[in-house]
Amino acid sequence: MPVPERMEFFIDPGRCIGCQACVQACSECDTHKGQSMIHLEFVHRAYTTQTVPVVCMHCDSPTCAEVCPADAIKKTGDGVVQTARKPRCIACNNCVLACPFGVPKMNTEAELMMKCDMCYDRTSEGKKPMCATVCPSQALFYGTREEIEAIRPRSAPTHAFRFGGQTVTTKVGMMLPRRREAEYLDVTAAMHEEGRGKAILLNMLEE
């Protein structure tokens, strides 16, 4: 049974309180026991406590699947990019390096890439994904577009992300302020920045 088309996943990073409930709930799932498919990322740990939950965005043209040399990552008709097929995955890490959102992670012990598949075993049965059921601040929301618009009148979901010259459209929506200008992310800018980790290390040595 496919995931119903009207049910959508929305991430609202501004509401994330970093409680790790989603990570715990995800790792309790029997299909990947002990390993979480959702990552909780710190935006800038030295300056802020803000965290962002990272689930698979389920791109319309998934880069992970594009770069897979073993044909292991497939997308089902309902737009869900499935995790790597175990018999096909060769643990080459191409998808891990290619994904612009940093979603796929390599399980080196199992030699298998494992990533969020929007709890396909649950959502295809009409249930909500694990992380969305436990999120106390509703930073992770699974429901219809009407529901999210009713409870977040000042936000609107976006499905397009620009990485350098590439625009990636996704199935999962990111909640952003309704009045906003198009963000442009210069992916190579980080190369010219001063290494922040290095500066902290030097301070520690001086003391």
Binding site: D60, S61, P62, T63, A65, E66, D71, I73, K74, K75, T76, G77, G79, Q82, Q166, T169
Partner: peptide, 25 residues
């Protein structure tokens, strides 16, 4: 089902993209 990265139709895509499709069907 999947969009192509360059936005061109599926028929205009290179041969390898048809040999290694992303969609399960």
């Amino acid at each position: 089902d999947s969009a192509t990265p360059d936005g061109r139709p599926a028929a205009a895509q290179p041969r390898w993209r048809q040999d290694f499709p992303i969609d399960t069907p």
